[in-house]
Design a protein around this nucleic acid. Sequence first.
DNA 1: TGGCGAACGTTTGGATCCGAACGATACTGT
DNA 2: ACAGTATCGTTCGGATCCAAACGTTCGCCA
Lengths: 173, 173
Amino acid sequence: MATGFTSSNDDDLIAAERDVQRAIGDLQIDFDSLAAVSNIFRVANLARYHMERTVLAQHDLSFTAFTTLWVLWVWGEREARHLAAEAGISKGTLTGVVSTLERRGLVERHTHPNDKRLVLISATDLGNDTMAVLFPTFNAEEARITDHLTTKQKKALASSLRSILRTLEGDSK
Amino acid sequence: MATGFTSSNDDDLIAAERDVQRAIGDLQIDFDSLAAVSNIFRVANLARYHMERTVLAQHDLSFTAFTTLWVLWVWGEREARHLAAEAGISKGTLTGVVSTLERRGLVERHTHPNDKRLVLISATDLGNDTMAVLFPTFNAEEARITDHLTTKQKKALASSLRSILRTLEGDSK
DNA sequence: TGGCGAACGTTTGGATCCGAACGATACTGT
DNA sequence: ACAGTATCGTTCGGATCCAAACGTTCGCCA
């Protein structure tokens, strides 16, 4: 599959920036913001693909299915719309993902006893056991791909990303 | 739509980490790597959604279609498999994306004159004009969502992400 | 010079993704 | 009480995503 753009070292990025500058002519572009944001997309795209091919393929789980099951493993039973929000997908998408996980015996659906509109979703024992094995492996791979960063750099990276996250979440209010 | 997880300030992250620690019991987890990588996914997911709803919706373009057209705008005519690699999608996916863009009159397909297996894809005048309007708007939004970061922080962010990118790309060799 | 493996883009099948429309259920005000 | 409104999860239509299979075209080499 693809890696997003063709190269990734700093010299090549400068060359790419020059191409962009030429293409846009005299338009004003904020290259620092461009580099920061576009690299977020590139890394996320490639890292997701990488995790699906290595760690998750062993258990035949998609990245979204893994994320959904992870939320249930850590926080326990959730109502469907909250689970969708926490997994970062629409509720329409969640219906399909939960159906897939349910078919595999990893999660269960239950109607809320006091409100029949609500669906409660929880991980089964098999689901929890799967995550107990899978997550340490997943985290070890997270550590490996960030191995060239110092602890301080990792903390700064997470902090900068949280800053962007707050701005994005502020928009929807 | 969803935002991925429920909160984003540093205090809440620590609470989330406590929940993870409780769920995994005595397993060893690298929380710095976890925070760094998971925030990449969260921000990318939400930023992509944000860009599609705000900037790209004005021109009815998906994020992938925008990325593909952006590559053609900056670097000019490309062979299909290279375009797919640079846009970060498989060649099978590219076929559909190019068909969508072609239907909209934004790109053109041409068979290579010396090798009929190859397909050359290029932006039309309409495609280039669209990007000349769209990209500055897109970049302005990139700048806005990273507004709380200093120039130094943006450079550090991009640099850390490139470091991860190099590790990921090294795997496929 | 012709066969045969390699490389190309496309097609296929199945999962995911969204927004919008839908039916079912709960709440609200009179 | 009960009609009207709001909210829930699901379904639907259409686009995107991948891997694998496929037919076409090229290059290699006997």
